[in-house]
Simulated scan of single mutants.
Amino acid sequence: MTIVASNLIWGVGPKTIVRDVSLSVCGGETLGLIGPNGSGKSSLLRLLSGLKRPRSGRVEINGRDVARVSRRNLAREVAFVQQNAATDTNVSVRDVVRLGRTPHRSALGGWSSADEAAVSAALAQVDMHGRRAQAWQTLSGGERQRVHIARALAQSPTILFLDEPTNHLDIHHQIEILRMVRDLDVTSIVALHDLNLAAMFCDRIVVMQEGALVACGPPAAVLNQALLRQVFRIEAEVIELSGSGRPHIRFCSL
């Protein structure tokens, strides 16, 4: 297993936001986190990545308790892509991706050939190498998200966490980004709002409701009419997508 979480509880003040969640993620898997707004998806993502520490429970990444790993060492294995990371600084695409090498560099160390190779490889993986000299401000939303992912890949992680990476993108770029993430040679944990995109691109889906894990498994086993009614309060028909074995949700009109 790449990630094993046991009995995670976390909250703010008296409010509990993540309630006794246990799960495991296998190497190379793309795991989707879905649930209504306020269900605890983003908080769980930050607990799993080590960005937040639980009130109780434990997270192990590659066999090590993340609470006992320094942030710098953890950043050499784990990368996190936020929803809407932005910068107002006039920098190039390459400069943004170079930031991903920070965990691998010493305070006195110069820019190495290994750093340059990692940046070039990351840009190539997201098909942005040809735009490495382009100014950040001139990029479209989809291109910026690709660059954010490239910066994460420049860390040379084994695990990639993404918090709603398709938020505010048009459908073409949503599909493009998720297809790219699925095809990366890393373990990916992705928080998503769109249920059909989760069904299309995730190997397994975790469903959150009021901070608790209420379902986990392959999309076809998890997404059904009863769950959609109970968790998302919607009426929908679930059909198989073009013989793929993956479900497609057809929402019922009111």
Rank of each mutant, 00 (worst) to 15 (best):
I61T: 03
N196C: 10
L74E: 04
T30G: 01
G217N: 13
V81C: 00
H173K: 09
L153Y: 03
I234V: 15
R204E: 08
M1K: 13
C26W: 11
L23E: 02
V190F: 03
R131T: 11
T30R: 07
V238M: 08
T87D: 10
F80T: 01
L123V: 06
E29I: 08
A86Y: 10
G100Q: 02
L108P: 05
R146G: 05
I177R: 04
V238I: 14
V91W: 09
R151T: 03
V78G: 00
L228N: 05
R46Q: 15
D20W: 08
S24F: 11
R182C: 07
A121H: 12
R132A: 15
L195E: 00
V66E: 00
T138K: 13
D183P: 05
G245E: 05
L23Y: 10
G13T: 10
G11P: 04
G50Q: 02
L44Y: 01
D115H: 08
N90D: 15
Q134L: 12
P54I: 05
Q225W: 09
W111A: 04
N37I: 10
S43W: 03
P247R: 03
R55F: 09
C252S: 13
V91P: 04
N90R: 15
V12N: 15
S24Q: 14
A114H: 13
L241P: 00
I149F: 04
P219M: 06
L178K: 02
S106H: 12
F161Q: 02
L8D: 00
R250I: 15
V206L: 12
R146E: 05
I159S: 02
P218V: 08
F201P: 01
D95Y: 04
I9V: 13
M128V: 06
E116A: 15
A236I: 08
G13Y: 06
H104D: 07
L108E: 04
M1L: 15
V59K: 00
D170N: 09
M200R: 15
G130N: 11
Q125E: 14
E164K: 03
S6T: 14
H129Y: 15
A154C: 12
Q125V: 08
V25D: 02
P165M: 09
A220P: 05
G13H: 06
N73Y: 12
A191T: 02
V238W: 06
G57H: 07
L31A: 04
I149C: 06
D170C: 09
S120Y: 06
D203G: 09
F251A: 13
I61M: 05
S112Q: 11
N196I: 07
I205K: 00
L227G: 04
K15A: 12
A199Q: 00
R76Q: 15
D95K: 13
A107G: 08
L108T: 11
L45Q: 04
A199K: 01
L51E: 03
V222I: 15
R68A: 14
V181W: 01
G35Q: 01
I239P: 03
L160C: 05
Q134R: 14
V119E: 01
G141N: 04
N90Q: 14
M1V: 13
S39R: 02
V25H: 00
V222G: 04
D88R: 12
R132P: 02
D115K: 07
G110E: 09
Q174R: 10
A215Q: 05
V81P: 00
L184Q: 07
E116C: 09
P165L: 06
V93F: 05
A79G: 07
S49M: 06
H193V: 12
